[in-house]
């Protein structure tokens, strides 16, 4: 459905915006390395089923997400390492890993390796933006491209919400993926005040600056 496709393309767009920003400005300043590593962990743990992916659409996206994230990490850790300031990236990710690990172990759909890792990836994704938002809060402002990146990434999970509603009514099974929906709503809520500032400032051509 249209929400699902727009969501996935918004996710892909966010990555291209980030890569464009890094290469254009030859800098990864303002980007949280910790958030990027968490996204890498999200892709690895969610796409363990990559070799058995039957849908070409999903297969292509999975390969694109994993490879582009690897490339971003390479750029941040090697090529543009001097522009990456760890002193601004101080969020304690062990809380996020603990939160996702605990929920994945307590409420997986099934106690299989793939299912527990899948649930872990869903919960971890829901909070993986926090080091990035924390960094924004510390610096107080962001380049337009960084703001566009976060907005496109937030739009992705926000668009999955109407996708789930659409699927609930359009599919005969009426199934609700409780883990994905709960985590997806949490994820969207975490972006809400970012979205507000993005809407009131960046979309009107002003700088992203926290009040």
């Amino acid at each position: 459905n249209i929400f699902r496709v727009l969501g996935d393309f918004s996710h892909l767009a966010s990555i291209f915006i980030l890569l464009h920003k890094i290469q254009q400005l030859k800098s990864c300043s303002g980007i949280s390395f910790k958030s990027q590593v968490l996204y890498m962990l999200v892709y690895i743990t969610r796409y363990l089923d990559l070799p058995w992916t039957s849908s070409p659409y999903n297969f292509i996206f999975k390969v694109l997400f994993i490879s582009s994230e690897l490339y971003i990490i390479y750029l941040m850790a090697r090529a543009y390492k001097p522009t990456n300031d760890p002193n601004l990236d101080t969020f304690h990710v062990e809380f996020l890993l603990g939160f996702a690990g605990l929920l994945a172990l307590l409420f997986p759909y099934k106690y299989t390796i793939l299912e527990v890792f899948w649930a872990f990836s869903i919960w971890l994704e829901s909070v993986a933006i926090l080091p990035q938002l924390f960094m924004l809060q510390r610096t107080g402002e962001a380049e337009a491209m960084t703001a566009h990146y976060i907005a496109a990434l937030g739009m992705y999970r926000a668009l999955y919400i109407p996708n789930w509603i659409y699927r609930y009514f359009s599919e005969p099974t009426h199934k609700v993926d409780t883990i994905a929906v709960t985590a997806g709503i949490l994820q969207t809520i975490l972006y809400s005040d970012f979205f507000w500032i993005y809407y009131t400032k960046v979309m009107r051509g002003e700088k992203f600056k926290l009040p």
């Binding site: 699902r4 996935d8 996710h11 969610r46 089923d49 058995w52 992916t53 039957s54 849908s55 999903n58 996206f61 999975k62 997400f65 759909y109 793939l114 899948w118 999955y160 996708n163 993926d177 994905a180």
Partner: peptide, 10 residues
């Protein structure tokens, strides 16, 4: 393939 049917979203 069964896994894909369970989690058919990205």
């Amino acid at each position: 393939a069964a896994k894909e049917a369970d989690h058919d979203e990205l």
